[in-house]
Design a protein around this nucleic acid. Sequence first.
DNA 1: TCCGCTATCTTGTTTTGCAAGGTAGGTGTC
DNA 2: GACACCTACCTTGCAAAACAAGATAGCGGA
Lengths: 122, 122
Amino acid sequence: MIPSQMLKGTLEGCVLAILRQEERYGYEISQTLERYGFGRIPEGTVYPLLLRLEKRGSIIASFRASPEGPQRKYYALTELGQKELAEFFRNYRELTGAVDQLIEMTGGHSHAQEDEAAVGGE
Amino acid sequence: MIPSQMLKGTLEGCVLAILRQEERYGYEISQTLERYGFGRIPEGTVYPLLLRLEKRGSIIASFRASPEGPQRKYYALTELGQKELAEFFRNYRELTGAVDQLIEMTGGHSHAQEDEAAVGGE
DNA sequence: TCCGCTATCTTGTTTTGCAAGGTAGGTGTC
DNA sequence: GACACCTACCTTGCAAAACAAGATAGCGGA
């Protein structure tokens, strides 16, 4: 399980990335994140995040009926959202670049699983 | 500049990684992080983080004189700290694995700079 | 004496993930 | 009709952590 602190800042960019190609609604996004390996991201996280993005103007919403259950609120990227997504990519690369360099300099480990196997856990 | 929200949780693991091979003191760690590409990490961030780790038992401190200025507080990893470092590696890989997969599935981009160049900025 | 560098720590603010819980539509079962 | 369950949305309040700002202190030089 990815610790919640480590998701901070990253989740927002990931939601923008999910909306990059097609409109999606909150409930769907929550499930999509889980499929990508983020673990269960509860609605109490996703909806406030979406409302924040909407208020800021990064995404726009439109209600549409659902074949099962209540209306769905579909979100789409605005131009601002696309710029923010591009900036997220840059920041994410900057972060992983720094961390990967640090890991390598301080004793390797960046993407292999040598001695970790012995520690076990999870 | 990496946004501070994106550093949350990650910084702690990075400090553990820095202490992996040799003892270091706070002021030094702050400068080391900058050299690795994290940008300026102010003392108001580093010292509380170190105190937190010390209280938790992840690191132990020992004062030693400095050739210039006041005493230095050197930190070293404990066994707990080493386990936490190993867990940080796992979590970091899990996070980057999920994000990289998401980025790739939603339109590539993982580590190239194609269309972003046109957006400009920074 | 005062400034600047080294070196430590504290207080309070802000952001954000999440637990918990509430509202509501639709379908099925008793 | 009453109830349960899934879908689908939202809100309130808490906790963790980065950081701005500022305090303290040793040491050297102008």
